[in-house]
Design a binder for these strands. Structure first.
Length: 274
DNA sequence: ATGCCTTATTTCATAAGA
């Protein structure tokens, strides 16, 4: 089974490249993040022509996740139990009773695909360590840990894939000195990843294909991709039963090149599942 | 040090991303 995860930064803007990539890489299961589309407007018909079933979970302008599968798509979960809503200082108290405002953001969708329990996850950015968004990010990870712990009681083959918005180590950012004081590298964020690994999930580190670091994200600005000034924040966290069946894993940096790319590259994991 | 790009939207300006 070929499993992949890709933050596409708008499925609408990326649709030609998504279809091209599906046709070329032929993942059996693809987790998408930042679809920036409603569930209804996801181009399920277009990917369906390539044989993919779709489980989309979107909200419109921001966020949004999906799973595409050639090998079945069952027990779809939109969001996870206990997933927090953002209730930061930017929400007017008088609006807190508005329907929808406190609905959890579309940051998680799960499904069973060909014997594998798959999650497509888009962690909150956090903005700055002082921000309410940062506290929300840590709450989100804590709730995710609880939800995954419950599933792991009965799902030995599970892969939590997506844009975790945390670089696990200093080797996962192009210049650690420049990230001092920034989100994505703080000890509490890295501890949140360690807490997920403590559930028995293993970080499936991909091969970079070029250069020493398997970065998965490069800023659009300042020629960051050409200078390989990136970060590894798109991760596949797999149970031992899955991680022990990895035949290979790589970052498809070709997908970051050319006209109209996402700022993230896909991570591809080949599994030899029983 | 923001914002050297890019996206979507209550669009010709803003919010957000990481």
């Amino acid at each position: 089974m070929r499993l992949a995860t890709w933050n596409v930064n708008s499925v609408k803007a990326r649709l030609p490249r998504l279809l091209e990539w599906l046709d070329e890489a032929k993942p059996d299961v693809l987790c998408l993040q930042e679809i920036k589309s409603t569930t209804a407007l996801f181009p399920a018909g277009e990917v369906g022509e390539l044989g993919y079933e779709t489980a989309a979970h979107g909200e419109g302008r921001w966020n949004g996740v999906a799973i595409l599968s050639l090998v079945g798509l069952e027990n779809v979960s939109r969001g996870f139990p206990g997933q927090p809503s953002y209730e930061g200082e930017t929400v007017e108290p008088a609006l807190l009773d508005e329907p929808g405002l406190r609905t959890p953001e579309a940051r998680a969708v799960g499904a069973n695909c060909g014997g594998l329990r798959v999650w497509s996850l888009y962690a909150p950015n956090g903005r700055t360590p002082e921000s309410a968004h940062y506290a929300y990010k840590l709450e989100w990870f804590a709730a995710l840990r609880t939800a995954l712990a419950a599933e792991l009681e009965h799902e030995p083959q599970l892969a939590a894939c997506g844009d975790f918005n945390v670089a696990p180590t200093d080797d996962d950012v192009w210049d650690p000195k420049l990230f001092i004081g920034s989100t994505h590298v703080t000890p509490p964020e890295r501890q949140a990843l360690a807490d997920l690994r403590a559930l028995g999930l293993q970080d499936v580190v991909p091969t970079p294909m070029k250069g020493p670091h398997p970065f998965t994200y490069w800023d659009y600005r300042a020629g960051a991709f050409a200078k390989d000034q990136g970060m590894r924040i798109d991760l596949v966290y797999a149970t031992a039963a899955v991680a022990g069946r990895v035949d290979g894993a790589y970052v498809d940096r070709e997908a970051r090149k050319g006209k109209g790319p996402s700022d993230h590259a896909p991570v591809v994991v080949d599994l030899n599942l029983s």
